[in-house]
Amino acid sequence: MTVARRFTFSRLLVWIFLAAIVIVSLFPFFWMLIGTTLNPNAVVAGVVIPGKEFPLNWNKAIKNYNLPVYFLNSLKIATLTVLLGVLVNSLAAFGFEKYRSNAREKVFSVFMLSLMMPQIALVIPLFKLMSSLRLLNTHAAIILPALMSPFIIFFMRQNFQMFPTEIMEAARIDGAREIYIFFRIVVPSMKASFVSAGIYMFLSQWNSYLWPLMTILSEEKKTLPIAISSMMRAYTIEYGAVMIIVGISIVPVLVLYLAMQKEFVSGLLGSVKG
């Protein structure tokens, strides 16, 4: 199909529209970068020319706001969630897909049903449970409930459908045990699926707010999102330093997204095709 590419008024309008959306989409990020170099008053006033206060703001972010502590907490929690969570969920997904039985299908549909459960209905009784387990105000309280993810199980199961069962049978004939098949044959050949499941889990744990807000009380255990929201609660706010911290909370996510865009987006889409 050949369409004549002429310059028309409507084409111009379309490009202006696209440009406007690009500006609106990117402006908050751009403004955040500028803000890291400004003094608090200039940030609020909406100055959009870079200033010279980045080193000062950086010092405040580190000394007044304990940025490294929050960053390391967030990193630790998200990393542990990814490592353990991908293992648990992919094993379960593999079990559901390759070792089918009626009982397993029933368990699977119960898991899928819980995808619809609103978070607010779960976290209140979960809080009581954590308090009776004496896990409140620990990072374990954030990690444990996030490990098993119905969505990741669903996503990995979709992916395992593509893994040929013949290979598994061949390996069995050669005397390989099931767990060996999983770790030595399935994992290496389906790296992309594991990576996108990992990114997805990292993003949702790194960005999670409500549950850490409920469970973490002491300053030195806070994650970035709850630390940021409590900074906004203070009487005087060092906006420039807050901009740096917001930036630091966004950067790992942006890097992950830009590096792994293909896997991540196709992973998201895998959930629609189902």
Partner: peptide, 18 residues
């Protein structure tokens, strides 16, 4: 990529910016 970018930022981060 640009249009998708906003949705990877954390809810708290973008709420604070806004």
């Amino acid at each position: 990529t640009i249009f998708f970018l906003p949705c990877v930022t954390s809810l708290v981060a973008y709420s604070v910016l806004f």
